[in-house]
């Protein structure tokens, strides 16, 4: 599907979405509350079938966090990028680990690095960081570690 067709289709699914074009792929801004519903539809809709989540990450913009989901369809080979703004003080968004199971590990990584709380995630624990790093959020821009940090 072309970007315009995708846009039309997604507007149909979720009227209150903002689009950003000009980048490599079509960017879609969603509210965290709408994300779960949209994700299910993106995965299951017969003309979209975004079955492959190839990148899931988070960006710290100091004022807010942005969750970024890169989606691909192995059937139609169209890509979109979903972005959701999260509150920096208490970031939370619904999990999509049951829709795309790769999100399980990626969400755990984002959880420990950025402190994003994935609601209904089955196993939200530290994956990479050692014990004792709960809630330290080392990938945030304001993170300071007097011991391990080396300024370049």
């Amino acid at each position: 599907m072309t970007n315009d067709a995708l846009k039309a289709k997604i507007t149909e699914l979720l009227p209150a979405t903002g689009f950003e074009e000009g980048g490599q792929w079509l960017n879609i801004n969603v509210e965290p509350a709408d994300w779960r519903l949209l994700a299910e539809q993106l995965r299951l809709d017969a003309s979209l079938q975004f079955d492959y989540l190839f990148c899931l990450t988070c960006i710290d913009w100091k004022t807010h966090l942005t969750m970024v989901y890169h989606l691909d369809s192995t059937k139609f080979r169209h890509n979109i990028v979903i972005k959701a703004k999260l509150d920096v003080a208490k970031p939370a968004i619904e999990t999509v680990s049951d829709i795309w199971r790769t999100a399980d590990f990626h969400e755990r990584e984002v959880y420990e690095m950025f402190g994003v709380d994935f609601i209904n995630h089955p196993d939200l624990r530290l994956l990479i960081l050692p014990d004792g790093w709960e809630g330290k959020r080392p990938m945030l821009k304001n993170f300071e570690d007097p011991v391990n940090m080396i300024r370049l």
Partner: peptide
């Protein structure tokens, strides 16, 4: 870079 993310194949394959 302001933020850089590496999507590594092994991470997903391991899951």
């Amino acid at each position: 870079p302001y933020r850089i993310k590496f999507r590594s194949p092994g991470f997903s394959n391991l899951s």
